[in-house]
Nucleic acid binder design. Structure first.
Lengths: 344, 344
DNA sequence: CGGCGGTTTGCAAACGTTACCAAAGCGGTC
DNA sequence: GACCGCTTTGGTAACGTTTGCAAACCGCCG
């Protein structure tokens, strides 16, 4: 398994290693003929540059680290895919790892990426812990947080690209109000996550403005799995309730809710309208058709990547950047217009 | 962004770089005290070894390449997750990339992994193209194919771990026969994939032995998305049909079929039993409860990883290894026992 | 005190690139 | 024919590790 190196090529082409290197990186200061000859030898010998050596020498790896909390979650899978596409287009390769629930795994991954001299790291997570981590490593590698929001009372403002959760919350309330709903529930309130806090505050604020009644239902369960949503829904639906609509913090929760509603004989949307958040692929399926707020994954990915590349190439500009992507309501079949006075 | 290197540590600890290296790789030939001192300095200075340099020098990277065709596919996502877990337990890190539909992407990824001097590559794919590729690279990096089967007429036998598709096909036929079905369809026959060919042949063989009538429905669509399954199902269900059961090549196809059946008013399983293959997470959901054959992802992952590590550590033993994992029938709600003579 | 194993250390050469700087080649001008 | 500027090439020192080999140290025996 002896591999052909740049030296072999140089010898066979009758030039110096420097010249080979130049031919490979198509530097301007090389004679056309020489380049051709060198490249031909490369092809003949099946030469592949050793990225390890290249990175070590040039101190840039063209590698980006990407950490997602859970590969099985379709929203994150879609995000990863989009990021991979954008990165590749920009000449970077993505190392994808999932942080999974294990404590300390996030730290391990940062460590790994750093040791590998990744040019930058994208961290997708909704937890606040990610924030501290990103700050700690910020000085060593450019980091962009995806989808996370700074806790408002944090002194730290990290480079962040996320959906505008506050606006999303408001939009949800406004949408339900427009359909005539006046008594609604917010399903899956989470402690310790600024992302969710913002979403909730936006919802509450708009609902208040519009004179709607809001019941918040906190979740002790995971809010990113259908199973968690089912648990939550069982609690909510098994007692009598007055609400005509539910805003769920995620599509997963919404899907769980719909399933339980189905089992308990609560017709959706006739008795209860359901509005989700994320617009995961499964939400569009013909026998689900969940009305939801779309995060617009491609835009999110593109924006995050662009920011990261700026940081890498232009250096840390000192301040921090935060980009918000406005979500949009995707109307499908799980929200119903209530009869009554015309609502614009 | 000046990083602390092994030299800095050596200087600060008053020893040579060799000694630091030994302390870090806890070599046996080092004095306990010295090691402590060195490690303390490392901690104080926040030293992180440069994996690039380490790999370059030691010519092993502890990196494994993993290629999956599609991250959005839950089966592959689950597989990736399991592999990541196993690999990490064995001290390897996984670089996950999706080959996506693009032509040439597979080649690009192999190239990338090679350039990065990955210690080995895991390739998950059901297409035959993967086979040639694995063969071409086999000499340069240990490769294990996951889930793919050699085309039977290929002279090449690559290192492979896959579900026993032939046995799976047989089990499917036997299971349906046991429930009393005698007139069945095989939905989603694929050209150019040995995996699917084997599955089909197994099904056909057992069905033949048991005297069942089989109608094969070839698929011009993708067989790994629900959407593809829907297209296929529409073709099948819109004309009158005599079959009482369908064996779908994948859960995705089965899910698509069930949806269309629902839309067209064909009750499942009363009028039509549906049997899937893969046991993806969504198949278990309470309002789906798809009866299916399980690929047993964790076993698959573990087995593949063990094989790859053997190849890496003990070298290519000359011959090729093929491991088959027997699938198992997961009984849920979409297959019905037909009334009639008792069938064992 | 010389010598002898065994443990612990250090020197220096890899590993395969890139990058800086000097030098060679080559027309053309004065 | 010396000199100049431009293009093209090569030599060599990095980059941050590991590794083989030689040297230093240490306690002990004869």
């Amino acid at each position: 398994m002896q591999r052909v190196t740049i030296k072999d090529v140089a010898r066979l082409a009758g030039v110096s290693v420097t010249t080979v290197s130049r031919a490979l990186n198509n530097a301007p200061e090389i004679h056309g003929e020489t380049r051709e000859r060198v490249l031909r030898v490369c092809r003949e010998q099946g030469y592949r540059a050793n990225l390890l050596a290249r990175s070590l020498s040039s101190s840039r790896s063209s590698l980006l680290g990407l950490i997602v909390p859970d590969l099985a979650n379709p929203f994150h899978a879609a995000l990863a895919l989009n990021l991979e596409l954008c990165a590749q287009a920009a000449g970077y390769q993505v190392m994808l790892c999932s942080s999974r629930p294990e404590e300390g795994q996030l730290e391990t991954l940062f460590d790994l990426f750093f040791s590998q001299r990744a040019d930058g790291v994208l961290l997708s997570s909704s937890g606040d812990g990610a924030y501290d981590l990103a700050r700690r490593w910020q000085g060593d590698m450019p980091c962009v947080l995806l989808g996370a929001c700074a806790p408002e009372d944090s002194p730290h403002r990290g480079n962040t690209v996320s959906v505008d959760n506050y606006a999303g919350g408001r939009m949800a309330a406004e949408y339900l109000h427009r359909l005539g709903h006046r008594d609604v529930a917010y399903l899956g309130l989470r402690e310790g996550s600024a992302t969710h806090a913002l979403r909730y505050r936006g919802f509450l604020s708009a609902a208040g403005d519009l004179g709607m009644k809001v019941t918040a239902i906190p979740s002790p369960y995971s809010v990113s799995t259908i199973e968690g949503g089912r648990h939550l829904a069982r609690g909510f639906l098994s007692a009598p309730f007055s609400q005509t609509a539910v805003f769920a913090v995620s599509d997963s929760v919404a899907l769980g809710l719909i399933q339980v509603a189905d089992e308990l004989g609560v017709p959706v949307p006739q008795r209860l309208s359901v509005l989700g958040f994320d617009n995961i692929e499964y939400a569009a399926l013909p026998n689900i058709r969940l009305t939801t707020l779309s995060q617009n994954t491609p835009r999110l990915a593109q924006s995050a990547l662009r920011l990261l590349l700026e940081l890498i190439e232009d250096g840390d500009g000192g301040g921090y950047v935060r980009r918000l992507i406005t979500p949009s309501v995707i109307e499908r079949a799980t929200c119903r217009r209530l009869p009554g006075p015309a609502n614009t």
